[in-house]
């Protein structure tokens, strides 16, 4: 039951990706050029190129992570739901994943120990600590 779903809307556009990677490549080139200029003694030009390079790298990685985060947010998370089944006679308790057709106080599966009909006593989802604080 616990799964994520995605469709065409959750994919990152290839045009956006191209722009991000192009900016990243240009910024890296600026950084390499900056070291060359620094070696040649042109410190001011090297300084500008260094600034442009760092800003470019920072911007493109930020946009890339933001786009990825937005895509992750777009997925509908289906939490795992558990069903607790109890035997009224011998007290045997079993917990399994929810199945379509389950409902609280449904009589069904025979007990593994005494073969008596068991009763669904609980159906719920457990929320992780991270989700609780969000």
């Amino acid at each position: 039951m616990s799964k994520t779903q995605s469709n065409a809307t959750t994919r990152i556009s290839s045009f956006v990706l191209l722009i991000i990677f192009l900016t990243l490549a240009l910024s890296l080139t600026a950084l390499i050029l900056a070291t060359t200029f620094f070696g040649q003694g042109n410190e001011i030009i090297a300084g500008y190129l260094l600034l442009i390079g760092f800003i470019g790298v920072a911007l493109s990685t930020y946009v890339l992570f933001q786009t990825r985060r937005r895509m992750l947010r777009l997925r509908i998370e289906i939490p795992p739901i558990v069903t607790t089944i109890e035997c009224r006679k011998c007290g045997f308790k079993s917990v399994r994943e929810f199945q379509r057709g389950d409902y609280i106080f449904k009589e069904g599966e025979p007990c593994q120990k005494c073969n008596e009909k068991m009763l669904i006593t609980a159906i719920y989802r457990e929320v992780k600590d991270k989700e609780k604080t969000a």
């Binding site: 609980a122 159906i123 989802r125 457990e126 929320v127």
Partner: peptide, 9 residues
């Protein structure tokens, strides 16, 4: 409106 949480149960 989402599946019942353990705390609510």
């Amino acid at each position: 409106v989402s599946p019942m949480r353990k705390e609510i149960f």
